[in-house]
Amino acid sequence: MRLRAAHVRVRVPATSANLGPGFDALGLALGLHDELDVRAVASPGVRVEVEGEGAGQVPDDERHLVVRALRAALDRVGAPQTGLHLVCRNRIPHGRGLGSSAAAVVAGVLAARGLVGDPDVLGGDDALALATELEGHPDNAAPALLGGLTLAWTADGEGGGTAGVRAVRLPVHDDVAPLAVVPPQHLSTHAARGVLPAQVPHADAAWQAGRAGLLVEALGRRPDLLLDATGDRLHQGYRRSVMPESLALVDALRARGVAAVVSGAGPTVLALARGGDATAGRAGDDVPDGRATDADAAVADAFGGVMAGWRVLRLPVDDAGATVRALLD
């Protein structure tokens, strides 16, 4: 298999996994994007330029996560390796539970698809399987690839079916208006997972299953049920020691009637608010205008007017997912 394109542009959304009870299964794509230009070049080696999030901090050589994913994808489909020049315009905060690493992996996989120039290569389940293999879990990779709300699982081949990672898209009600409340400090996924117990009480698991089912209904058809539907007993409480401020904010917002959860492995807090018709001011140069929500006053009240480095990002649900297109130099 040969490379048919020399220059591609990839756009990948931020994601929020878990959403409370949907641990390692549910994820939501959000309207904040990393955009990358990837060029195949004749000279050997790699040059990576990073603008925005991670600039001066992430590797600028073969160790860069997008490069590693891209090379793994080319190997997977039997395409030749090549010299690479990447320009990464990063807007997804790093180490905040908004899927930055999954976005990098998905970007690499889609860049390889674009360079190969065959839409049937690394499509659908194949792209998800490889992204999950590289990332470790499908809960962020699935919404980054597919957009919207996704449910991901691993099929075990029972009954003669095909084993592997699967995902489906689920509907999201138009009234759902996510708010990401992003702290100044970061937290590694490894640290957040390190405090989780190997076992949980059966009663908690049963309770959680009911909330996960309710969350699908609340997000799709009954946003009025979101507060009850976002309850959790499997992971957030155990993580209080490594993100006390985030869990204190979750508690404060939920006490005020807001369906607040830890986004992914944290420490960002995601409020699954309900939107109105009014247009709010820009949350920043890197995010679109957002709707006023029923959580705005509660967030302001919880902080008491002192944000101390926290940012509130109004992020609509991203329905498109990751995209790649060839460019002509």
Rank of each mutant, 00 (worst) to 15 (best):
M1E: 10
M1S: 05
R2N: 15
R2P: 15
L3Q: 04
R9G: 00
V10R: 01
P13Q: 04
A14W: 10
A25I: 05
A25K: 01
A25E: 09
G27V: 04
L32F: 06
E35S: 08
L36A: 10
D37H: 10
V38P: 02
R39H: 06
R47I: 01
E53L: 04
G56N: 11
G56Y: 09
D61W: 11
E62H: 14
R63S: 13
A72R: 15
R76E: 11
G83L: 09
H85I: 05
R91P: 00
G95W: 01
G95C: 02
R96K: 13
S101Q: 09
A103V: 00
A103S: 08
A104D: 02
V105C: 14
G108Q: 09
G108H: 07
A112M: 13
R113L: 12
G114P: 01
L115A: 01
P119C: 06
D120L: 13
D125L: 01
A131F: 09
L134T: 07
E135I: 11
N140A: 08
P143H: 13
L145G: 10
T150V: 12
T150S: 03
L151W: 11
A152I: 05
W153Y: 13
T154N: 06
G159A: 06
G160P: 10
T162Y: 00
T162V: 14
A167H: 13
V168N: 01
L179F: 08
A180Q: 06
V181R: 04
P183C: 10
P184K: 11
T189C: 05
T189M: 08
V195M: 11
Q199G: 01
P201Y: 07
A205V: 07
W207D: 12
W207T: 04
A212K: 03
L214F: 02
V216G: 12
A218G: 14
A218F: 09
L219I: 04
R222E: 01
T230E: 12
G231H: 11
L234C: 12
H235M: 09
G237L: 12
Y238W: 15
R240C: 00
S241T: 15
M243R: 14
D251S: 08
A252F: 09
A252Q: 09
A252Y: 10
L253S: 01
L253T: 03
A255Y: 00
G257R: 08
G257L: 13
V258H: 02
A259S: 05
A260R: 08
V261S: 09
V262T: 05
V262C: 08
S263E: 12
G264C: 09
A265I: 07
T268Y: 13
V269Y: 05
L270Y: 09
L272N: 03
L272M: 10
R274Q: 15
R274T: 10
T279F: 06
T279M: 11
G281V: 03
G281T: 04
R282T: 02
A283V: 09
A283Q: 06
A283I: 00
G284N: 03
V287A: 15
D296M: 06
A298Q: 09
A298Y: 10
G305D: 02
G309I: 14
L313K: 03
L313C: 05
D319V: 03
A320N: 06
G321Q: 02
G321M: 05
T323Q: 13
L328F: 11
